Simulated scan of single mutants.
Amino acid sequence: MSQPNILIVDNEKEIRQLLKVSLHTSGMQTYEAESGREAVSILQQNRIHLVILDLMMEDMNGWEVLQYLKSHHLKMPVIVLSARQLDTDKIEVLGMGADDYVTKPFSTGELIARVQANLRRWNPSLLENKLSVGELTYDPTIQQLHKSSGTISLSPLEGQLLELFMSQPGYVFTKEDIFRSIWKLDQFDVNPVNVYINFLRKKIEDDPANPRYIQTIRGIGYRFQEVDT
């Protein structure tokens, strides 16, 4: 797998460190900036494939970084990561060219999945299109899962759900993590999560009533587990 360069722009050292570890674990290289001005300097000197951008920073804020990218015709996906939760803020930065908006506090598993999804959308050659966990291989370009017993076609939402799980095997996603990552709405609704977990289990599990891959973590959510063949 190639290693995309991710620029983390945030004035909180703890958040930069958390994202650095998670991105490295997922096979990506990172650059770090604690201000917008430092981010611009890194962008001028390095090939960056995606930016994770805080908004509230001194010495050039996130809005100004978005303006810089636009005025200098620098085309790359930008995921805004901010504590600001107003819809007006989200609408504004998306209108300025940001590709996604994640509010703090956040799930690292969900954020990594969004990073991977944006990288695939912008430049599929950066990441392997196929995801493999154990005997399972999923090809998101044609929404097909390959396992020893055959090939399974998935719906778009089923595919997105499986891709989220397979991008972080062993990670425990809460139902709210899953909802916000797949449906991208602020008003949490557990029903579609339950429905599509059941749909996916019926397609990929040998015995959906006793799932081996999509395991329920009682009181928390779900975990995708590699199964020995």
Rank of each mutant, 00 (worst) to 15 (best):
P192C: 07
N194D: 14
L164M: 10
V195T: 13
E176G: 11
N194V: 08
V190L: 13
K184Y: 06
T174S: 07
N194H: 11
F165W: 03
T174F: 00
Y196C: 06
P169G: 03
I178E: 09
F188N: 15
F173E: 01
Y171W: 00
R180V: 08
R180D: 08
R180Y: 05
S167I: 06
F179G: 05
F179P: 00
K184Q: 12
F188E: 14
D186M: 13
G170Q: 01
Q168Y: 06
D177L: 04
W183S: 11
R180I: 09
W183N: 09
I197T: 04
F173S: 01
L164A: 08
K175Y: 01
M166N: 02
S181L: 12
K175P: 00
D186Q: 14
P169S: 02
I182V: 05
M166L: 10
F179L: 03
E176M: 07
R180T: 06
D189P: 00
V195A: 15
N191L: 15
V172K: 08
K184R: 08
F173R: 04
Y171G: 01
Y171V: 00
V172A: 03
F179A: 11
I178K: 10
P192N: 13
E176T: 09
R180C: 07
M166Q: 04
V195L: 15
F179S: 04
W183Y: 07
D189S: 13
F173L: 01
G170A: 03
I197C: 08
Q187F: 14
P192G: 12
G170V: 00
N194I: 10
D189V: 09
E176N: 10
Y171A: 06
F179C: 10
I178Y: 03
R180M: 10
Y196Q: 08
P169Q: 03
D177K: 08
V190T: 11
G170E: 00
K184M: 12
T174C: 02
V195M: 15
E176A: 11
D186V: 04
Q168L: 09
W183A: 14
I182R: 04
N194P: 03
T174P: 00
V190F: 09
V193Q: 11
V193A: 12
Q168D: 14
F173I: 00
I178R: 07
D189R: 12
L185Q: 12
T174M: 02
D186F: 10
